Simulated scan of single mutants.
Amino acid sequence: MLQLPGVGPVLAARIIGRVGSLDRFPSDNRFASCCGTAPIEISSGDVTRHCLSCAVDRQLNHALHLIALSQVRCHAQHRIYCQRKRATGKGHCEAMRYLQRRLATVICRHLTTDQHAATPAAA
């Protein structure tokens, strides 16, 4: 996970400590929901918005937010992704939420591969 841009040893330790065992999350979507990056649709008339659930791990969400901020500042690929979202009419917060959602999927996959590599195969 340390190979990801914007993830240092402190954030990696915070994420691993808060996640614990990945057995709690049967899919990437469940992990994103726990992190608070899977939005819940709220509607009022013709306006459709998304908000975050209140039943999330705020420390995981904060760690993903810090990684997303670092990636937008320092990496052109992620900055272009956010600019593309903004060009489609999304606000800054919505564009960051989309980036955090992508990060949640990537981090979950990294944690899964790291967990499988760390566990010895049954003989």
Rank of each mutant, 00 (worst) to 15 (best):
A68I: 01
Q83F: 07
Q71G: 08
Y81C: 06
R101V: 03
A118F: 08
M96K: 03
E41D: 03
V47K: 15
S70H: 14
P26Y: 08
V10R: 08
H65R: 13
H92N: 10
T119M: 08
H65F: 13
Q77V: 15
H50C: 10
H78V: 06
I107K: 00
F25M: 08
Q3E: 13
T119D: 12
P39Q: 05
A121E: 10
L103G: 00
H116A: 14
D114R: 10
Q71Y: 07
G89A: 06
A117S: 08
L60K: 02
A32V: 03
P120G: 08
V106P: 02
H62I: 07
C74G: 15
G17P: 11
M96H: 02
Q83S: 10
T105R: 03
G6N: 05
Q77C: 15
Y98S: 07
Q3I: 12
N61P: 03
Q100T: 02
P5K: 03
D46H: 10
I15V: 07
A118C: 03
P26W: 08
P120F: 09
Q59Y: 13
E94Q: 07
V7K: 02
R109G: 04
G6Q: 04
A104F: 00
C34L: 09
D46C: 11
Q83W: 06
A118D: 06
F31L: 02
A87E: 13
G45I: 01
H50F: 11
L22V: 08
E41Q: 13
C93N: 15
A32I: 01
Q59S: 15
H62W: 13
C51V: 15
P120K: 02
R30W: 13
